[in-house]
């Protein structure tokens, strides 16, 4: 596939916000005491990230003015379900932030909103991942590792951000509670992605040029795709990066997205300094953008079999 930067940024930023909200919700439900000011600020950050990601998703549409129609087919379409869950999640995060700011009853700020936010964050991960995992013939995506990747990558980035912010703001108790979770989530995310990368690199696709054309010859080559200068089919489904570029992107995403952040976070656990956490969070974000780009680029669409040769 040719990765669309709108979708790459949308899913990455939404994932950070989801992980951030999960960390705050878990802390509110049973963890350490957190200053209301800090909670409200972090919820505002999450809301801003979510609104930004929603904006990115609009950039993917050819007809953004009609986007409201996308909420109608939730019975059959995971994309439609995502379109419903994302605004609901934003609404809960904004309302929770407002409740914290206005000093509403702990029943709201410590129970109701955190539970709702947890549920919606999980649902959003499910919807986003299933958009890709339900396409059975894109075999790189049609696998439970897709869901695991979206969940763990989101948790890792959100928890790293929370711990970094908590260290800076002097919320020592929150940082101490979330720190180990951030390291574990980063390791799980890296593990899930490495497993998926390995599986996808070795995949033997069910569709072949023979099954695509029904011509049973052992040697079968395309001599013309039927047009000379490309079409939607050649623009949308081919990433055009070189093999070397793909190898570099893969190395970059493993190091920046997971290895370095995990090392820095472990260092942060061992010391009381806040800079390792800040470094981990800021190194990881570009790594995750590359990772999500790679997630799309690595998927080979079966339609590409029909678009091999111009003549």
């Amino acid at each position: 596939m040719n990765p669309a930067f709108s979708v790459v940024f949308f899913t990455t930023l939404a994932g950070v916000a989801q992980g951030l909200v999960v960390a705050l919700a878990v802390a509110a439900l049973g963890g350490p005491a957190v200053a209301p000011g800090f909670s409200a600020t972090m919820l505002a950050v999450a809301a801003i990230l979510l609104v930004l990601s929603l904006g990115c998703s609009f950039l993917h549409l050819g007809r953004p003015a009609r986007a409201w129609r996308a909420a109608t087919m939730w019975r059959t379409s995971w994309l439609s379900r995502e379109v419903i869950v994302l605004p609901a999640f934003i609404a809960v995060v904004v309302l929770w932030g407002a409740a914290v700011r206005t000093g509403a009853s702990p029943l709201w700020t410590q129970v109701a909103f955190p539970v709702a936010a947890l549920g919606l964050a999980a649902l959003l991960w499910l919807c986003t991942a299933m958009i890709y995992a339900c396409l059975r013939f894109i075999e790189e995506w049609a696998h439970p590792l897709t869901l695991a990747s979206f969940v763990f990558v989101g948790l890792s980035s959100g928890f790293l951000l929370v711990v970094a912010a908590a260290r800076v703001a002097g919320e020592g108790e929150l940082a101490r509670c979330c720190g180990p979770a951030a390291v574990v989530a980063t390791l799980l995310a890296g593990g899930a992605r490495l497993l998926a990368l390995r599986r996808n690199a070795r995949i033997r696709h069910r569709s072949t040029l023979q099954s695509a054309t029904g011509i049973a010859a052992t040697r079968l080559v395309q001599t013309s795709m039927g047009m000379s200068a490309g079409s939607f089919n050649t623009r949308e489904f081919f990433h055009r990066a070189s093999a070397l570029g793909m190898r570099r992107a893969r190395a970059l995403l493993v190091v920046l997205g997971f290895a370095l952040p995990a090392l820095l976070a472990a260092l942060g656990l061992a010391t009381s300094a806040s800079w390792p956490w800040l470094a981990a969070a800021s190194v990881q974000l570009p790594g995750l953008i590359v990772d999500r780009w790679f997630f799309f680029a690595q998927a080979k669409h079966p339609q590409n079999l029909y678009y091999q040769v111009v003549s």
């Binding site: 549409l61 050819g62 129609r69 089919n233």
Partner: peptide, 26 residues
């Protein structure tokens, strides 16, 4: 009149039978 040009249906077609009209974005 209902298409929002999200291209998801084209991703979901293994045959590459769908083409986005670049001018109308549907």
């Amino acid at each position: 009149d209902k298409c929002i040009g999200c291209k998801y249906c084209a991703w979901a077609c293994p045959y590459g039978a769908r083409e986005l009209d670049e001018a109308r974005q549907v």
